[in-house]
Amino acid sequence: MEYVTPTEQEIDEELSRRHTAEVQQRFKNARVAIAGLGGLGSNIAIMLTRAGVGTLHLIDFDRVELSNINRQQYSLKEVNMYKTDAIALEIQRINPYIRLICDCVKVDENNLAELFSDDKIVCEAFDNPYAKSMLVNGLLESRDDVTVVSASGMAGFDKSNLITTKKITDRFYLCGDMTSEAQNGNGLVAPRVALCAAHQANAILRLILDKKDV
């Protein structure tokens, strides 16, 4: 049988049946930036796609490597592709009507303000702790209209229930176990990375719905 892509209306109706039309409309109107498309960011992007978030701003400078496949939402055929291109392919397979804004750049102090100027919800999904600190501080110090959902600590095989969502300020949420650093002998593994990503994705969906408690 020939494959026919469902229409945007068909997908929207299916999502509305699950979420209610009102919630779905909010998701569809929302825009979320995801900074970093590794274990956290690629999982978050896929989860927000499945939920029907209308616009995703995806930022990463890196290419997919074989070592990423253990936990990131890419497949072998995408090794060596830019992550922004590879995630766009994956997203289009799930919902081709999501509007994607892809920036294949490295975020730093100089481009941060301009890069996120149209974003109100920014998901910090970097792996480097210095980059995490730079993004969180850079955005929260200079803007009072942006909320950042960040992550810290999700390596290894420690207990699932240690991963939590904390509200640090009204505009700064932090997910993770806060301590499990990725290092030799305690690497990043799919389940805990996905758990942390799910905490971030759910915090974002709740923000879209104005549910600000944790």
Binding site: G36, G38, G39, L40, G41, A125, F126, D127, N128, P129, Y130, K132, S133, V136, S150, A151, S152, G153, M154, A155, I168, L174, M178, T179, S180, E181, A182, Q183, L188, V193
Partner: peptide, 10 residues
């Protein structure tokens, strides 16, 4: 005061 000490991994 809350000091968030970011650890590597993502």
């Amino acid at each position: 005061v809350e000091i968030v000490n970011f650890v590597g991994g993502g």
